[in-house]
Design a protein around this nucleic acid. Structure first.
Lengths: 99, 99
DNA sequence: TTTTCATATGCGGCCAAACGCATATGCGCT
DNA sequence: AGCGCATATGCGTTTGGCCGCATATGAAAA
């Protein structure tokens, strides 16, 4: 449906969420506390951001003891994954630009 | 720079702007009044949306008599154009989905 | 020059998003 | 059970985006 598209774009519009996605996009699992530390975000802030990413269908989380391990959602439709790929790719290539 | 990336994502986050982009993405020129009519948007609303798209570097406008003709910016960096392509592509393919 | 059409913009209101703080929940360890 | 770590969430505040309305600008035609 079209609603998911809007959710995804809203999700990736926030820089912190994009940064989290970039970390998760390797396919590995990462807990909230790790993301908090690496992205310099408060606990409640990071938790909420992850919820939004999950609701958009971009990531999935599972309980593992006291942690929640988030990872890229492998069931994401290919056309939508392509959007994320393009965004992360572009952001990465723009990182080292001078002008 | 990274700022442009954020501008672009903010720009395509709005449904009306995405719809305008979809129309302009064929490369042709379209005036504001045409976009207003096709997207059922008020004049000031459409004008502002176009300004945001232009500031993000996605489109360019030129005066032609009393009209302003907007079109896709052909000088847009390829990695950024790829993002727009992916988004429009995905939205198009999701259009006819049942589930 | 006055009128008319097309577009841009200043202003103020409205609404949703994002945040910090505090608190609740979930889980393992002792 | 009680404690401590990790995560989620309710609440109230602040911030920013989008809008309509009115007005300004720009350009052609009368």
């Amino acid at each position: 449906m079209k609603r998911r598209m809007q959710e995804i774009l809203t999700a990736i519009c926030d820089p912190t969420r994009r940064a989290a996605l970039a970390i998760l996009w390797d396919g590995g699992e990462h807990c909230v506390c790790e993301l908090m530390a690496r992205l310099d975000a408060s606990q409640s802030r990071m938790s909420r951001h992850m919820k939004i990413l999950a609701q958009a269908g971009l990531v999935t989380g599972r309980r593992d003891a006291q942690w929640v391990r988030y990872k890229r959602n492998i069931e994401l439709a290919p056309e939508l994954a392509a959007v994320i790929d393009a965004v992360l790719m572009a952001e990465h290539s723009l990182e080292k630009e001078i002008a």
